[in-house]
Amino acid sequence: MEWLAARTNDGADWLTREDILDFALEGEPRRLQPTQTGIWKPRDLQAALSIQTVYRAPGRERPYNDDLGPDGLLRYAWRGEDPDHPDNRALRAAMKMNKPLIWFFGVGMGPAVFQPIFPVYILWEEPQDQRFVIDPNVGRGLVTESSPIEEHLKKYLMVETKRRLHQPVFRSTVLRAYRSRCAVCALAHKELLDAAHILPDRDEEGIASVVNGLALCKIHHAAFDANILGIRPDLIVQVREDILREVDGPMLRHGIQERHGRRLMALPHARSEMPDTGLLETAFDRFRSA
Rank of each mutant, 00 (worst) to 15 (best):
F170K: 03
F170L: 00
F170D: 03
R171T: 11
R171I: 00
R171F: 00
R171H: 05
R171G: 04
S172R: 08
S172N: 15
S172L: 01
T173V: 01
T173A: 12
V174E: 10
L175S: 05
L175I: 10
R176F: 09
R176K: 09
R176V: 11
A177S: 13
A177L: 06
Y178P: 07
Y178N: 08
Y178K: 08
Y178T: 06
R179S: 10
R179T: 06
R179P: 00
S180R: 14
S180H: 15
S180I: 02
R181Y: 09
R181P: 01
C182Q: 10
C182S: 15
C182Y: 04
C182M: 11
A183V: 03
V184T: 13
V184M: 03
A186I: 06
A186G: 00
A186L: 08
A186D: 12
L187H: 13
A188L: 03
A188I: 01
H189Y: 12
H189K: 13
H189M: 07
K190W: 04
K190P: 11
K190H: 11
E191M: 04
E191P: 01
E191I: 08
L192P: 02
L192A: 14
L193D: 01
L193C: 01
L193I: 02
D194L: 00
D194P: 00
D194A: 02
D194S: 06
D194H: 15
A195N: 09
A195H: 01
A196K: 02
A196S: 12
H197C: 00
I198V: 01
I198C: 01
I198S: 05
L199G: 00
P200F: 02
P200L: 02
D201G: 08
D201W: 14
D201S: 11
D201F: 14
D201E: 13
R202H: 12
D203M: 13
D203H: 14
D203W: 14
E204G: 10
E204Q: 07
E204N: 02
E204M: 05
E205D: 13
E205S: 12
E205R: 14
G206E: 06
G206T: 06
I207F: 15
A208K: 00
A208T: 03
S209C: 09
S209F: 09
S209Y: 13
S209H: 15
V211C: 10
N212S: 09
N212F: 10
N212K: 08
N212Y: 11
G213W: 12
L214F: 08
L214M: 03
L214E: 01
L214D: 06
L216T: 07
L216W: 09
L216D: 07
C217D: 07
C217G: 11
C217V: 11
K218L: 05
K218F: 05
K218E: 14
I219C: 08
I219F: 11
I219D: 06
I219H: 13
